[in-house]
Simulated scan of single mutants.
Amino acid sequence: MPAETTVKAALEALNKALNQLDNEVDRQVEASRNSSEAAAELGRMIEDRSRIAVELDQAQDRSNRLEEANREVSRRLVTAMETIRAVLDR
């Protein structure tokens, strides 16, 4: 009987070790999947950042052009007002 008990104990230990190994493999697969998903999300974020940076540059350029146009319109209005005042003063 002691041999049967030893074999039974060894089989139980082996079964326990196989279950632990199976659980660890599952954990590693899940960790790998999560890592892949995180890498994909990081890639999307980098693409979004690049796109947003381009849009920001375009918006800044447009803002600069509008500011320049505003200064030009203001200058022309001042010139027109001065011309009107000069004509009225005559």
Rank of each mutant, 00 (worst) to 15 (best):
I46Y: 04
I52W: 09
A86F: 11
D57I: 05
E68M: 06
D26T: 11
S74D: 08
E72Q: 06
N64A: 14
E72M: 04
L88F: 00
A3M: 10
R71V: 00
E67Q: 10
L18G: 05
N15H: 10
A40S: 14
N19C: 00
M45A: 12
N34S: 13
V87S: 15
R75G: 01
A31S: 08
R62H: 02
L11S: 08
M45Q: 12
N23D: 15
A80S: 04
A40R: 07
R62E: 08
A38W: 03
D89N: 14
M45C: 11
L21K: 14
Q28M: 15
A59V: 07
K8S: 03
Q28L: 15
L14I: 06
S63T: 11
E24T: 12
T79K: 10
P2K: 12
P2I: 15
T79W: 09
E41T: 06
S74W: 00
A31T: 11
E68D: 13
K8G: 05
A17K: 10
A39E: 07
D48K: 08
L66A: 02
E12K: 04
L21D: 10
S36I: 15
D89L: 12
V29R: 14
Q60A: 01
K8T: 10
V78I: 05
K16Q: 13
A17E: 06
A38E: 04
R51Q: 14
L42S: 04
M1E: 13
E41M: 02
E24N: 13
N34G: 13
Q60C: 00
R33E: 09
V87F: 10
T83L: 15
A9E: 11
V29P: 01
E30S: 11
I84T: 08
D57G: 07
R27L: 13
E12M: 02
A80V: 11
I46R: 05
R33W: 11
V73H: 02
V78R: 03
L11D: 11
I52Y: 06
E37G: 03
S63L: 15
V87N: 10
A13K: 08
R44H: 05
E37R: 08
D57R: 08
E55M: 10
D48A: 14
E67Y: 05
E12V: 06
R27K: 13
L42R: 12
L11F: 05
